[in-house]
């Protein structure tokens, strides 16, 4: 088929792509023009173009800041712990839901589990402070009325870490099940029946059928998550964090906010952003490569 005939036949498919492509070009590639801020002494009265080049000076400055290493460590630590705690949670939940027989109960619990995902972090932050405050929080009021000591959920750094992680699970686990549940519908029901006839119990069936069926999905999600190791959302650590636990709660995104938006040092903020992007790319490619070698599952 000649190129013209090919295009004439399939042009609609390409036309469909125009909109998403435009979106990516305008909102994702266009702003890359701004990367050069990292290499310039950016002065917003001059604009990007007319600001002076300074080479890697800003990088030297950022890599010399103590807060950079602290926030980098915290970002990696919070993300790694999140991966340990929050990653398996939706998987387990999805399997539990899948095993349920009563459809109405399954639907109901799914809905209840999704809801936290739709609450903004600012509101969750407010709720967390009402519930876990040391002196006036509901949980501590209960503990104290039962004669226990108050637990500084929000002001002691180790306790705060646990609060942070569990709130994350509460917020995201339900939503995360959607992908697994969708994947589970793809597993042939006959496999379960056959296994049942051969005498496999519920746990055996989960182990030998459900989990292998979910393996590609798990691997893909794991790779995506690893790609995000170096980047962290702004709202969750910013809203749940506080001065007493800043040692743990100050992360790269709050650091960028502070030096960029609050102090107006856009050059330094861009350097940190660029650094995150480059390391993030390395993580994704690395995870993908490893996964390809080990399990033959990969996304590139």
């Amino acid at each position: 088929m000649s190129a013209i005939a090919y295009l004439r036949r399939y042009w609609q498919l390409y036309a469909l792509l125009v909109l998403p492509l435009t979106y990516f070009i305008i909102f994702k590639y266009g702003p890359m023009y701004g990367i050069q801020i990292a290499f310039k002494d950016f002065n917003f009265f001059q604009g990007i173009h007319r600001s002076e080049w300074i080479g890697f000076e800003a990088f030297r400055e950022v890599f010399g800041m103590r807060d950079f290493y602290l926030t980098l460590r915290n970002t990696l630590m919070l993300n790694f712990l999140d991966l340990l705690v929050s990653f398996p949670a939706p998987l387990i939940l999805a399997i539990l839901l899948y095993e349920l027989k009563a459809v109405w109960f399954k639907k109901l619990s799914q809905t209840i589990l999704y809801i936290p995902h739709f609450i903004s972090w600012v509101i969750i932050g407010g709720i967390v402070y009402q519930v876990f405050g040391t002196e006036s929080g509901m949980v501590n009021n209960l503990l104290m009325s039962l004669g226990f000591e108050a637990v500084p959920f929000l002001t002691d750094k180790s306790d705060w870490l646990i609060t942070y992680l569990l709130v994350g699970v509460w917020q995201s686990a339900g939503w995360g099940t959607i992908i697994y549940l969708a994947a589970l519908t793809g597993i042939n029901k006959e496999l379960f029946e056959a296994a049942g006839i051969d005498g496999a119990g519920r746990l055996k069936r989960i182990w030998h059928i459900t989990l292998p069926g979910l393996k590609p999905t798990i691997v893909v999600l794991l790779i995506i998550n690893l790609g995000h190791m170096i980047s962290i959302g702004f709202e969750r650590p910013y809203v749940i964090g506080n001065l007493a636990v800043r040692e743990y709660s100050d992360v790269l995104s709050t650091f960028v906010y502070r030096i960029g938006i609050e102090s107006g040092q856009y050059t330094l903020a861009t350097v940190v952003g660029l650094f995150q992007a480059v390391v993030g790319l390395i993580f994704v490619l690395g995870a993908n490569y490893t996964s390809k070698k080990l399990t033959d599952e990969s996304i590139l």
């Binding site: 909102f27 994702k28 702003p31 890359m32 023009y33 701004g34 990367i35 801020i37 990292a38 917003f44 790609g227 995000h228 170096i230 980047s231 960028v256 960029g260 938006i261 856009y266 903020a269 861009t270 940190v272 952003g273 660029l274 995150q276 992007a277 993030g280 790319l281 994704v284």
Partner: peptide, 12 residues
Amino acid sequence: SLLLLVLICSLL
């Protein structure tokens, strides 16, 4: 993740 850095630029 690639483009997090443009947060600032896109703001501008």
